[in-house]
Write a protein that binds this DNA or RNA. Structure first.
Lengths: 146, 146
DNA sequence: TATAAATGATACCATATTAGTATCATTTTG
DNA sequence: CAAAATGATACTAATATGGTATCATTTATA
């Protein structure tokens, strides 16, 4: 059972990478080289993040991406919601007319509590909080010939 | 994003149903009728629960299933693990040799904490705790001709 | 102004997971 | 022996996941 899928995963890593290159635009090719993410997949991911206002893109030669928001304001929960839709632990247990009432259902109540907890915790993990501790510092570009 | 899949869902409901019929064996057909779960699917689910020692089966005419353990001892986490494998929120973020070390990775650390929280909460929800509150009392069999 | 290097848009494809179905064998009661 | 139950197992359909592929557009710069 996965809470985080591959695209969310890659997005987190790539955003951390960009966050480590503060003043620079970073192009997909550079990240692909460094993080070994399949290039077209990362392009798709970045286009989504761009549309959602998490990345800002620059087209044309010398273009690339930068964070559209400070890394303190980009949270894991946001990325999960971009790629996996809204956090919703259970959505099918109560649809039939079998359970007397979703409002009264004790399971639904408990699951909803867990959901809120998880959501709160995921909302506390920012890109900044991941980068500052050092685990995701990927080193600056060396001699990039592409 | 789902934490609970359909089979786990059905299993919970069916076990609650059985728990409401304490002294009786309950056959698949009866549950199917009451809960509107697809019959062959529920059969598959019950065979899995039987193998895991959560249900006890009686073959032959007049046979059926009963709980192999008291409902106080059957927890949501157990059912999730039967049908969805072990709770593991993230398993792919750290496999490559990109991240310096999984032990140092701040994201892994935080995700692991969330994982433990969720697991603890799911371990606190027993079939009994769902049945006793009344939300899952499905009423006894009426005149069952199958 | 042509070309190279970047992203934008979009459609497609392969694999895995989820949600079942179908069938035949076996057991048990009557 | 027949009916009614589960056991075992294989198959199938739909959806989600993890990508590819292609062409269009923009921009810097030689």
């Amino acid at each position: 059972m996965k809470l985080i899928t591959r695209d969310t995963d890659y997005a987190v890593r790539a955003l951390c990478y960009i966050a480590g290159h503060k003043k620079e635009k970073v192009c997909v090719s550079a990240i692909v080289k460094e993080l070994k993410i399949p290039r077209p997949f990362l392009r798709k991911i970045f286009q989504a993040l761009n549309k959602k206002g998490i990345l800002k893109s620059y087209k044309g030669k010398g273009g690339g991406f930068e964070l559209a928001q400070p890394p303190e304001n980009i949270f894991l929960i946001d990325l999960i919601e971009v790629f996996q839709g809204p956090l919703k632990i259970n959505e099918c247990m109560f649809k039939n007319n079998v359970c007397p009432s979703i409002a009264l259902c004790p399971l639904n109540k408990k699951i909803t509590e867990i959901e809120k907890d998880v959501s709160a915790q995921l909302s506390g993990i920012s890109i900044y909080s991941l980068v500052k501790k050092g685990g995701f510092i990927y080193g600056k570009k060396k001699n990039n010939k592409n």
